[in-house]
């Protein structure tokens, strides 16, 4: 399948006084899997629907394969869309749903049938062609929606939280399958989710959105370990934002003057893990809980700020004996300490 790049240029959309998209620009490479990640109301679905053509913009441009599609109606854009609630036609069976885009393109019936069955096979739904939509499980509906979106060889795939209605195990299996489908077809994909773990697992790059803006766009590793803003740091996982002065270098060489972001899992109770140039902090244990694969400790620093520390159960022999009220020291290696420019605490 041929893949196309997408360019979003200074896109703006307001609903009354509410700014849903605030001057958003974005370059998506041909064949890339890009995720728009953010909390509800961050503008991620609005941006996706703008690319799809269902949201009319106030300002800005959208280019697909170098061609301006800003004013092209949705039915002329040739995009495969998977909706959050699947949007399968309840009055058609599985096969008729998948054949629908082909029938619109006046593709001969025999050809259309073969291609629809191929698409169903791709999503592992052989033998389901004649089923009614109502007789399918959530995961099966998801697959029909995928088959229907790829069957007409769209130029781009757009997915709006396609897995949010599925239970956890199925969701993880489908994440893998959607990514595999993307790799097989090489089709440019924009994926919307509010689940940071899903975004980290699936994406080539993640655009983290907050109140109508893109806060950071980067690879999963960089977005996680090198967040540009406090919002990104906290949205991507359990992040401790530590003000200047509350941590020290283990070797005492340098007083740390910047605001630091240290993930909960970067801490250890044993200084040996952190190395001589690592950082140390000390506080009173306020709460501890066992979560299976790790222990979660809450320390209150002398500055009264609380810090969350996650210790892998295999390295936490002593955790069970710690009592609230006790003073505890925690250590993190220098590589896991990240300064956030301009962040306020």
């Amino acid at each position: 399948m041929k893949s196309f790049p997408i360019t979003v240029e200074s896109v703006r959309k307001a609903y009354g006084s509410y700014l849903a998209l605030d001057d958003v620009s974005l370059e998506i490479e041909a064949g890339e899997f890009l995720t728009l990640l953010g909390p509800s109301g961050s503008g991620k679905t609005t941006l996706l629907m703008a690319v799809a053509g269902f949201v009319l913009l106030d300002n800005g441009k959208i280019l697909l394969g170098g061609r301006d599609i800003t004013r092209l109606p949705p039915n002329k854009r040739e995009l495969g869309i998977v909706f959050q609630n699947y949007a399968l036609f309840p009055h058609m069976n599985v096969l008729a749903n998948v054949e629908y885009p082909l029938a619109l393109r006046k593709i001969p019936r025999v050809d259309a049938r073969r291609r629809a069955l191929d698409a169903l096979a791709r999503v592992k739904l052989e033998g389901f062609a004649q089923r009614d939509i109502a007789a399918l499980s959530g995961g099966q509906r998801q697959r029909v929606a995928l088959a229907r979106a790829i069957v007409f060889k769209p130029r781009v795939m757009l997915m709006d939280e396609p897995l949010s209605a599925l239970d956890k195990n199925l969701r993880e299996a489908m994440q893998y399958e959607i990514r595999r489908l993307h790799d097989d077809l090489g089709i440019t994909t924009i994926y919307v989710t509010h689940d940071q773990r899903e975004a980290l697992t699936m994406s080539d790059r993640i655009a983290v959105m907050n109140s109508g803006r893109i806060e950071q766009i980067d690879t999963p590793e960089r977005v996680y370990h090198r967040p540009l803003t406090r919002f990104v740091a906290e949205f991507m996982g359990e992040a401790n934002i530590v003000p200047p002065g509350s941590v020290r270098r283990i070797d005492g060489v340098d007083a740390l003057r910047e605001t630091l972001m240290i993930r909960a899992e970067s801490f250890h109770l044993d200084p040996a893990f952190a190395g001589p140039d690592g950082v140390a902090l000390e506080g009173v244990l306020r709460a501890k809980s066992f979560r299976g694969e790790n222990w979660l400790l809450t320390l209150e620093l002398d500055t009264r700020q609380e810090v969350l520390i996650s210790v892998p159960a295999t390295l936490a022999a002593g955790c069970a004996d710690l009592a609230p009220g006790q003073r505890v020291a925690a250590f993190a290696p220098a590589a896991k300490v990240h300064a956030i420019a301009g962040a306020k605490v």
């Binding site: 799809a52 053509g53 269902f54 109606p73 949705p74 039915n75 002329k76 854009r77 040739e78 995009l79 495969g80 869309i81 909706f83 959050q84 609630n85 949007a87 399968l88 036609f89 629908y100 885009p101 619109l104 393109r105 229907r148 007409f152």
Partner: peptide, 13 residues
């Protein structure tokens, strides 16, 4: 469901 007409449009209707 308004998404049904949107889906139809996205497929070319």
């Amino acid at each position: 469901d308004p998404n049904l007409t949107r889906a139809a449009a996205s497929m070319g209707a």
